[in-house]
Amino acid sequence: MDDLYREIILDHYRNPRNKGELENPTHTFQDDNPLCGDRIRIDLKVNGDGAIDQVRFNGEGCAISQASASMLTEMISGKTLEEAKALSKQDILDALGIQLGPVRIKCALLPLKVLKGAIYGLPATFDEEG
């Protein structure tokens, strides 16, 4: 019915996957988007082989940011840290499958930014624009 709010996005927003927090995560990071108030935290448990055994996200915000976080957790579950590092903003936009303007793209990419922060232990610096 609506391009921006495709059924898959509404589904992830209403029924978020891997929502919550982990006890004793090996990697954790939180960031927000003060402009709109989106907030995302991601916890990872990485095993000795460098694979992501468990992932949880928590947060609040608009449907785009929350659905993007939910989809991201599915994308990285069971992947290695190296594979997660290789995720690009285009991978996220492809998964969402929607066209976003300069304001909403920040909502969509916040979870990836948080994931990279968790992996590298500091805020990511990739270009959010365009």
Binding site: L4, Y5, L35, C36, G37, I64, R104, C107
Partner: peptide, 21 residues
Amino acid sequence: LHAHDVAAILDREGIAIRAGH
């Protein structure tokens, strides 16, 4: 509903409102 989602849906209906802080 987050205010941004409300504003985005209203935009689809041709209605311009503000959302945020």
